[in-house]
Each structure stands twice: as structure tokens, then as C-alpha cells.
Design a protein around this nucleic acid. Sequence first.
DNA 1: CAATAGTTTCAGAAATTTCTGAAAGTTCAG
DNA 2: CTGAACTTTCAGAAATTTCTGAAACTATTG
Lengths: 183, 183
Amino acid sequence: MQMTPMIESFVCHFGEMGSRWGFNRTVGQIYALLVVSEQPICANEIAELLGISRGNVSMGLKELSSWQLVQVQHKAGDRKEYYFCRGSIWDMANKVFEERRKREMDPTLSLLRDIMMDEAANQDEAYAQQRIIEIHDLLENITEWTQSLQSLSPEKLNTLMKLGSGVGKVLEFTDKFRPKKDA
Amino acid sequence: MQMTPMIESFVCHFGEMGSRWGFNRTVGQIYALLVVSEQPICANEIAELLGISRGNVSMGLKELSSWQLVQVQHKAGDRKEYYFCRGSIWDMANKVFEERRKREMDPTLSLLRDIMMDEAANQDEAYAQQRIIEIHDLLENITEWTQSLQSLSPEKLNTLMKLGSGVGKVLEFTDKFRPKKDA
DNA sequence: CAATAGTTTCAGAAATTTCTGAAAGTTCAG
DNA sequence: CTGAACTTTCAGAAATTTCTGAAACTATTG
């Protein structure tokens, strides 16, 4: 594996995007590198290619492992661990969504639920609580929905996405034929 | 508006979540405060309630304005500007999605498109380019889809979300009746 | 068991982000 | 125009995050 301008700009950009996507620059770069490399790469080579410390690579790989985004491979007669990322692009996207849900949605939902349980002590709190309930319900809906979408096969998801806003029409169409079937 | 334990814990949590959601702690807290307050609040009061500097409030409000998440109101015989956030929870969620798309997807798509145009210089680059194309296509699909979903009415979106993974069944059902209509 | 080849950890350094508060800017009444 | 009431800006301080590299650890070989 060699750094060419093309690969470098991809890796570099994924690093910058990393922070927006919920992981840090190094993690983003390591991941990008593994995605575009056909061959597994060892930690030392990663450090060298990216120009970062060996320790940092170790931490980055640890994080990617916890996201289940990389895998380790051994080569015969070589003690090094070679990393690569297997799985389709869909798998990766799923992992990222899932992880973000865990970090961004779950703790919030949990707190909102707690607040919903409380008794409102005055007028202000009653109003606040009502807004909080609205937010909770929306987030819960979105969470459940995205979760159920993730259980769909990639093919079906693709069909759905291709429909685009046409899905609105499908809903109307469906309603006509079985208007009272869903709870 | 008074800080009660309930409101405080909500505000505080939104501050912590802020960073995960793409804005900083202060911005999150200011927003949370405005969401649960029935009455518009002036900048000084926000600073006081949250225990942060006046300047910081100003910057936070500026950012929220750029996201079009807050509005200003004036009171008769009072020069202060009073802030509140109008719009339903749906509107807010839409704004947040949109903003995140702008920050997280658009720059990436743009870079990936550039790379796709390049001529692969060797075997490694050819492989890399292929992977990059896969990623681009997926991101583009997702982006277009979420955009089209946002153009749907909240009611239709709700119906869709209620369907959950049942949407898979609807697709099958639809296919039977008009199998070759879509491109 | 010791030597070797590798990986992980973590204290502190470096870089980045956020926050403060004083100064500058704006608006408006008189 | 002047001054009061308010808002914004921004340089540097504070807080937070990320990175390094040496030391500790683990596993394998002879």
C-alpha cells in the first residue's frame, strides 16, 4: 500500500469528517485507509503511512474494534497483526448508525423518560414537561423506526430509497386497499 | 422563568448532548432553555439562568439563529430582545437534520465526486476508487432519500414510521399490483 | 527460562475548542 | 448630537481533547 494523492485526499478528508461523525481524526483516517486498501495492513505500517505515533494507532484500532468495524488477520510466519475492514458498505453504514444511536439517542431518551415520570411542581414545569414529552415521543418514534429499517434487507431498503418521496403515493395506494388493518 | 431541578436536569443534559449533536454545550443549553420556556427570554436572563457570560450567550444565540432555530421578539417600552423558539418539534428536528446533512454529507459527497473523476494511476488506486464509488453511491442515496422524506407531511411521515418494518410488506404488496412501473 | 517481537497503556505535552469580559458597535430617546 | 441601554466582537484564558513515546505487558520461540 502506498499513499498516492488520491488516497491521501480521501484519507485526509475522512479524518476531518471524523469529528462530525462521532470519532476523532485519527480514527477516521485509519478507517479510511483500511477501507481503500485491498490488502490488510499492520499497525506499524498504518502509523508510518499516516505519520502518527504507534500508540495512537493502537488506540484508534481499539476504538474501531469496539465499533466492530475492523478485523484482524495473521500471516503465516509473521507475528504481526494485520488489520482490514470486511463487510459491505451497508454493514459499515449500519454500524455507524447503530453506534450513533447508542450515543446520541439512548441516553437522551432515558433522561426524558425520567423527567416524564416526575410530578410537575408548578405552571412552568407543567409547560416544560409537556414539551419534553413531545420531544421524547418524537425521538422514540425515530429511534424505533430507524431500528426497524435496519432489520430490512439491503435490497428492500434500496427499493424504498429509490421510491423517494414516492413512498407517499404508495401509502395512499395501500390505504385504499386495506384501510383499517394496522393498529 | 425559574430553574427548577426538572428544568435544570433537562437543560444540563442537552448541553452534554450538544457536542454529540453537532453544536457545543452552551448552544445546547440555551436551546433547551428556550424550548421549555413558555415565555420568551432575554439574553441577560439566559446568561444568569445558565451561569455563563453575556458574550457567550450572544455567540450561542447567533449560532442558533443561523440554524433558524430561534426567533426574536420585542416588548413594548423595552429595548431588550427576547428570544424564543417557535415551530413544532417536527420543525426543529427537520432543521437539525438539514444542518447535519449540510455539515456531514455535502462536503463528503463533493470530495468523493472529485475523486471519482480522477483516473486511477495504478492497481491500488483502481481498487480504492471502486470502494470510494460504492461509498459515494450509498451516501448519495441516503442523502436524497432523507431529503425526499423531509418533504413529506408530518402526518405521512408518522404513518410511515408507525408501519415500522411493516413497510417491507407494503412494498411486496405494491409490487404485485404494479410490478414494472418504477425505473 | 530468557530473548525477542510484537501490542497496549497512560502521564504529560500539544493542539483544539470553548468561554470570559472588556472594548467597540448599534440604536434610539430626548 | 449626546448619552443610556443594549448587543456583538474578539484577544487571550481556561477547559477539553487528542497525541506522543517510553514503559509495561503479552505471546512465542529456542
